[in-house]
Write a protein that binds this DNA or RNA. Structure first.
Lengths: 157, 157
DNA sequence: TTTAGATGGTTGCAAATGAGACTATCTTAG
DNA sequence: CTAAGATAGTCTCATTTGCAACCATCTAAA
């Protein structure tokens, strides 16, 4: 049998790397702002989008279970970092958006995270970073992971 | 503020991709062989190495908490997929190795996983795969994630 | 309309996991 | 030799998270 090398095995490496990178970032959003990962994902999605969106949307585009998002939304409402208004068109769903307080947090946090990301990727040249991002994109697309700006999976078109 | 795009943010993408790739592989080791992720990591590490090794070693090189490894080892001993013998030199530690049954499982499983990995990476050209692996390696090294064949962190030398 | 099925969101429960205490053993400094 | 600290592994506890049942609402079809 061909010799198997766990440390060359891409799925394993991705898992380990993702865990390590998350840990490196958590100082910023966890220690400094008391956000856990699902909460940060909600904030990031709402801050990224100009218009309000539903919990369902956040769940889909971050690939996080809807119950996890639901709990994060509850916690963020309690902390008044986000606001929730009824949706006229569909009374099952709610429109979520950042509050002023949430926006302030978002705008303080983002530069810190981008700086961490730069640190982590600073071991690559500009070209290597570009190629790496492109490769990630290809794999994401082949796994049907990509979302458009309007929240539909690309494959759904 | 510069517009932040969650879907361009590498830490987020790594997390999402790692989760998705793991899910794609879990059919093989979970559904087919009833192994969870920590158990698979123990099997993979023991199968990869020619000589026996300790739980501590597995914990370090897979970056998995020692209590998680301990539970996986107990489960695998119960299923007789691995064997544990006392270490003459250090009676706190045990030497772990695959049993015949474990080796058989390993040799059946590995080609399936490698095939899945090939599927996932088949969206990249050979050169892109090589560059992607190299970039992963660089990031791993810069995060001090790399282990040598003898289980010490490279940075420890 | 009425009804069946789909969908948004919440919640209870169970499984998984990390933190850290704990025991036993090893190592090193005095 | 002894004591202090480090280390291997196990165990208990608390947290996290996914699953799935559930409710309310929406949609579509008869």
């Amino acid at each position: 049998m061909a010799k198997f090398d766990l440390f060359q095995f891409v799925p394993f490496r991705l898992n380990r790397l993702a865990a390590e990178v998350s840990a490196a970032l958590s100082d910023e959003y966890q220690v400094r702002y008391g956000l856990d990962i699902p909460e940060w994902r909600v904030i990031a999605t709402l801050g990224f989008r100009d218009d309000a969106c539903s919990a369902q949307f956040i769940s889909q585009c971050t690939r996080t279970h809807k119950s996890t998002i639901s709990r994060a939304v509850t916690a963020l409402l309690d902390r008044e970092l986000i606001e929730r208004v009824e949706n006229e068109d569909d009374r099952r769903a709610f429109e979520l958006r950042l509050s002023a307080k949430g926006t302030a947090l978002y705008e303080e946090l983002i530069p810190r995270l981008l700086s961490k990301e730069r640190d982590i990727l600073s071991c690559l040249t500009a070209q290597e970073r570009k190629d790496f991002a492109a490769a990630l994109g290809k794999i994401e697309r082949s796994l049907d992971l990509v979302q458009t700006r309007h929240g539909q999976k690309a494959g759904a078109y």
